[in-house]
Amino acid sequence: MAAARAQMSPDQAQPLLSVRGLNKTFGGVQALAEVSFEVRPGDILGVIGPNGSGKTTLVNAITGFIKLDSGRVSFQGRDITGWAPHKIVNRGLTRTFQVMRPYFSLPAFKNLIVPLFSNRARRTGGWRGGGRLGSRDTVAVDILEEIGFERESYVPYKVASSLPTGYLKRLELARCLALRPELIICDEVFSGLSMSEMASMVPLMEKLNLEGITLIMVEHRLRELFRLATRVLVMNFGAKIAEGTPEEVMADEQVKEAYFGSEEVYGYV
C-alpha cells in the first residue's frame, strides 16, 4: 500500500532510511525498545535523550556495528539489516564516533587515506568527486581545508594526536565526507567544543545539508541542534518517547518530564 501511494504522489519522496521495531538488550539492560522512525532525503533529524538512553546503541545498530535482537533497517529502499558495517558504508550510510577514533600517530590528512581507499570512494571519487582528479593525498588535504583545517597554518599536516577536540570532531566528519555520503549519522559532533569552535561547526553542518547530504544528529547541545534540525526524535530508556518538529517536542509533556524536567535542562538549553 505504502509503496503504491508513494508512486501515486511523486512529491512525497521515498524515505532514505527507514527503521522498524529495533530491539537490543545488553544483559538485563534494554538499550533499544521498539524504535521506529524514517528519514527523508535532505532531512536533518535530531536525536536527543538523557545519558544512557540508547542513542549511541541506535547508531551502532543502524550502521551494523552491533547485532540486533529484532527489527529491520532499510536504506534507499534496500533491506540492510544484519549487513557488515563496511558494506553499509559502501552504500553511502556513514557515521562518526562519539569517542573520536583518529589514527593518532598519523598526520591529519593521512587519516583520510583509509576511507579514500574504500570501494565507494574509488567509484565515486570521494566528496564532490575530487578523487578523480588528484592523488589521495591532495584530495585529503582539499577535504580538510574545505571543512576548516587552515592550510596556510599547516593544520592538515599536523599529527592527529596534537590536534584539539574541535579538529578531531571535524576529522570524524571528514572521514564520512571522503566516502561521498548520502547520509551521515553524527554521534555528538558538538560536544566538547568551545564556543568559537561551535560557531563555525553549525554553519558547516548547514552547508553539508545544503549540498544534499542528509543528517542524523545525536546531540546534547539542544540550542544549536534545534536551530538546525527539521525534526527531532526523543529517546528515554531505549524507547522513542516523542518525535516531531523542535517546537512540538519542546511542548511535549512526556519529554519535559523525561528530559527537560530534570536539572539537565539548565545545562543544555
Binding site: H86, F97, I113, P115, A178, L179
Partner: peptide, 19 residues
C-alpha cells in the same frame, strides 16, 4: 596505511568502508 589501520583502529577502518 590501511593495514596499519586494521591493526590500530579496526572500528574506524570498518567505518571507512573497508572489510
Amino acid at each position: 596505511l590501511v593495514f596499519r589501520g586494521v591493526k590500530d583502529n579496526d572500528q574506524a577502518v570498518k567505518a571507512s568502508g573497508i572489510n
